[in-house]
């Protein structure tokens, strides 16, 4: 099968899967116990108030009518209005997404780069003290409970030492100043980014490192590595130009999917660092039954993951000429 046909076939599959997800999300949210209005109530709200609100929000209609309306609106690009914000959900998602992408995509890329680099080095020194130390350290890091290490790093680096801000993405005291220049803003964001980035990298690098290490250990047994050495190439050349590119394929799959899932953010990381990303909104939307916001967020994540899968498949074929679909 040639690449174009494969892309076409996979695109059709993606559309079908996406439609199933769309329906699944609707059913799951509407059948789950609790409803948006019950979460809004307080003692000043009478049953009549609740009924009126339910009717105005269209939640009193039969489920299939709501489903058809939901599909119609979806295909018209109308993702609905958040029950709690009173704003179009697309506006809320697009407001939160850049913060999430900035933190999690950067963290994934940096962690992957560090993991690949360290992984290829320690695999080359298999069995040595460096290999043992780094492998144990990586295992430890990848099993760390992220909110715990995040709080610990805030306490030490931000509170005790004072190198980084305690939380958030910007310093409000600076941003309220009039005529704040671009560089001052950029520097402030970068300053806030460093600590969460460092924490995420500590936790994530280990996983990439271990994947790269085991993949490298398989690759160095291959005939073409012996051939490269027989050609008189230096160890560094053999490692960097012959072993590493081939060993990096499993890491690419992992990074591709991690990048896709990075749009989902990390509710715990975002909460601990008060990072204004989409992860926190997702938790809020789900726990308060804000259907439009929750469903639109999940649909967006599903779409990105499906497309990322396709891109990884294409990349595979591009990077490894032996792979054909």
């Amino acid at each position: 099968m040639n690449l174009k046909r494969m892309i076409f076939k996979r695109s059709i599959e993606i559309l079908v899967v996406f439609f199933i997800i769309l329906t699944g999300l609707f059913v799951l949210f509407h059948l789950a116990p609790g409803d948006p209005v019950s979460m809004m109530v307080d003692l000043t709200m009478t049953p009549e108030d609740v009924d009126r609100l339910v009717q105005q929000l269209g939640l009193d209609r039969p489920l299939w009518t709501q489903y058809l309306l939901y599909l119609k609106n979806f295909f018209r690009g109308n993702f609905g209005t958040s029950f709690h914000y009173g704003r179009p959900v697309i506006e809320i998602i697009s407001e939160r997404l850049p913060a999430t992408i900035l933190l999690f995509t950067t963290a994934t890329i940096l962690a992957a780069m560090a993991g690949v680099w360290c992984g290829k080095l320690i695999a080359w020194h298999k069995g040595g003290p460096l290999d043992a130390t780094v492998t144990i350290f990586s295992l430890l890091c990848s099993t760390l409970f992220l909110p715990w290490i995040a709080l610990l790093s805030i306490w030490f680096f931000a509170f005790r030492v004072g190198w980084f801000p305690l939380s958030g993405m910007i310093t409000p005291e600076i941003w309220v100043l009039p005529n704040l220049g671009f560089w001052a803003k950029a520097t402030d964001i970068l300053h806030h980014l460093l600590l969460p980035l460092l924490t995420l990298c500590i936790v994530n690098t280990g996983a990439y490192l271990l994947i790269m290490r085991s993949s490298m250990l398989e690759t160095i047994k291959e005939d073409y590595i012996i051939t490269a050495r027989a050609k008189g190439l230096t160890e560094k050349q053999v490692r960097n130009h012959h072993a590493a590119p081939n060993a990096a394929l499993p890491v690419i799959t992992s990074v591709g999917l991690s990048l896709a899932f990075s749009v989902n953010g990390g509710a715990l990381t975002e909460t601990v660092f008060s990072w204004p990303g989409i992860g926190r909104e997702l938790i809020f939307a789900v726990s308060n039954s804000d259907y439009p916001l929750a469903m639109a967020s999940f649909m967006f994540i599903a779409l990105v993951v499906l497309v990322a899968n396709l891109i990884v498949d294409i990349l595979y074929a591009y990077l490894d000429p032996r792979i054909r679909y």
Partner: peptide
């Protein structure tokens, strides 16, 4: 008004 999502911080 500044937002702190956890009481610890």
């Amino acid at each position: 008004f500044k937002i702190y999502s956890t009481a610890d911080v």
